[in-house]
Nucleic acid binder design. Structure first.
Lengths: 93, 93
DNA sequence: CTGTATCCTGAACGATACTG
DNA sequence: CAGTATCGTTCAGGATACAG
């Protein structure tokens, strides 16, 4: 379970995952969807998620340069779990 | 969902909740169960959880002084959610 | 026993500038 | 376009001392 804490640590990490749960995205698309994140933070979170095996990174050849991010199968399995977490938060206690 | 992030923010928060999912605990019992946490961190996390409506605090009269912590109904509902998170982490994918 | 006060470290964040 | 470099800020956390 320490694993989970390491994989999802960071204030913005789950929001990046949420964006990718809706489908693969390029760097620019993620940036537009999450304007609150600086380039630095977005890059750091993506690298962390790749390292954790949650996200897969694919450089695309051609011009303009493009990098595509998508969830791995492991990352996809995070969907219902995070949904449950958010539902809990939306619920008045 | 920002609510969830605020309520559970902090590296140790979910571990404190996990301990309380097994039943109410006094401060000393929590401290023994989570020896990695300094008094300061344990107090801070408990105060944060009380503030978030996840945990209930009850001072008990008599000697020695004692304070009892237990999950609120809202906190109890966190059980299966966190379990799912930990299961995800335990699963190599 | 159940905390609070103080001081310090390190991680995450934020803003701006710059490169392949 | 997709980042890295740099610098400053903020905040969770660790250690120790002390108080109600």
């Amino acid at each position: 379970m320490e694993i989970t804490l390491t994989a999802l640590r960071g204030r913005w990490t789950t929001l990046v995952v949420r964006e990718l749960l809706r489908g693969g995205r390029t760097y620019t698309e993620l940036k537009r969807a999450l304007p609150a994140l600086s380039d630095k933070v977005l890059s750091e979170r993506l690298a962390q998620l790749v390292e954790a095996g949650v996200v897969e990174r694919e450089r695309r050849p051609g011009w303009p340069p493009s990098t595509y991010y998508r969830l791995t199968p492991h990352g996809e399995r995070l969907g219902p779990v995070l949904q449950a977490l958010w539902d809990w938060g939306a619920h008045r206690g």
